[in-house]
Amino acid sequence: MNAPVANKLALRRSYFEASARARVAAVLDAGSFHEFLPPEASEPSPHLAVLDIPGAFDDGVIVGSATLGGRPVLVIAQEGQFMGGAVGEIHGAKIVGLLRRAVEEKPAAVIFMADSGGVRLHEANAGLIAISEIMRAVLDTRAAGVPVIALVGGSCGAFGGMGIVSRLCSAIVMSEEGRLALSGPEVIETVAGVEEFDSKDRALVWRVTGGKHRYLTGDCSELVEDDAASFRDGAIALLARWHEPAPASSTLRAEQARLTERRQRFAGLRDGLDVWGALGVAEPRQIPMMDRDSLVALKKGLPA
């Protein structure tokens, strides 16, 4: 490795490996974050206590206000290292409360740092209800004209209910390391068998859920490096050009038609490689080896 490359890597602060608190500190304007319900004021999950499992003071999610590029934002950051970032009752209530505050305060955006496998199964119905309340609150926030920007690049990705929540957001900023899908690889393998999906095949997992695949299929708007500073720049750039559209049934019908067409177009394809080929990529096998800038350039050249 030559010296400039080594220096560049040394300066990088991996978003994937950072804790939620480290991400909050690195993505938002330095020193601007003010936490609502900080650990000393929040409550750990009563459901986990009943099950004799130690909780976290903040129940695995940080909420608060900050500025991003000088503009006021409200912030949600899930901690993937605590129970896979799973959404329990208090965790969900903190997110819903923050989104309702956004409807009233109308900040420039809500920044949602998702890092979660979905519902916290220990909390059963309370977790499921929490997820559905978050979905409704995201849509209410957007309907109030406040964009909700999801950042997906943590070790747990965004799966299950949090996969749906992420796609309900205005736009998604993602790194190659990030993953986004509904059922996670292990769930598919458990339900449908290893012949259907081999969750141990990590390269396959990334080819069908990873950031590059989501960028090529248009499920995420920005592809960034696995670096907190890149996520910050990506979110600022997205916010600068974003105009939250007023909710309209015609937009929803158009999106439904687009997804139906896409489903038919890619029907029967079993691997990201096949999908990329169908999208017009001449050499799909090169995609996993490409760096971020080359992939962005390649996508610009694809047929619309």
């Binding site: 804790s19 939620a20 608190r21 900080p38 650990p39 000393e40 130690p54 909780g55 976290a56 003071f57 695995g60 901690e79 290292q81 605590f82 129970m83």
Partner: peptide, 19 residues
Amino acid sequence: AGAALCGVVGSGNLEILIR
């Protein structure tokens, strides 16, 4: 500071709150 938090409740890890 009024309180300080360190660490995460993850596998092989812990969180510590000092007040």
